[in-house]
């Protein structure tokens, strides 16, 4: 059974605000390029939820990108995260064989928003 590598980025934005500033909360981040570039490709699942859908949760924005078996995409994401981690608090980083497989960043507060980025590389047996 060949294991499948899955790469996941999760961006969470906390805070109250109207929908338009919330949607732009990720625009200054390099990671937004990963969402733009890979979000609509085959083998990728991208989810975006905002205020109306998260009503009652006090989340403002939830964005996730799950990419299957795409090492070049993973490299691109890691490069984006290297730029985004400037000024951010790196809460966690797991490095396996010299490659970051798990990264969790707390970004500086942007106005009323708290922003978090999670990146995880997981191995799953092929089904």
């Amino acid at each position: 059974m060949r294991p499948i590598k899955k790469y996941l980025i999760l961006t969470l934005v906390f805070g109250l605000g109207s929908i338009l500033p919330t949607l732009q909360a990720q625009s200054d981040l390099q990671i937004s390029k990963a969402f733009d570039q890979f979000g609509e490709r085959k083998g990728v699942v991208m989810v975006e939820l905002t205020d109306e859908m998260l009503n009652g949760y006090d989340f403002s924005l939830f964005k996730s990108l799950t990419i299957k078996d795409n090492p070049s995409a993973a490299d691109f994401i890691r490069k984006c995260l290297l730029k985004d981690e400037v000024g951010a608090k790196k809460v966690k980083q797991v490095v396996t064989n010299g490659i970051a497989t798990s990264i969790y960043l707390q970004l500086p507060r942007k106005g009323q928003f708290y922003r978090l980025i999670l990146f995880n590389e997981v191995f799953k047996p092929e089904q």
């Binding site: 085959k42 990728v44 991208m46 905002t50």
Partner: peptide, 10 residues
């Protein structure tokens, strides 16, 4: 603002 893309399909 609320959507998902699965294999490029919205």
């Amino acid at each position: 603002s609320n959507y998902a893309y699965i294999d490029g399909i919205k």
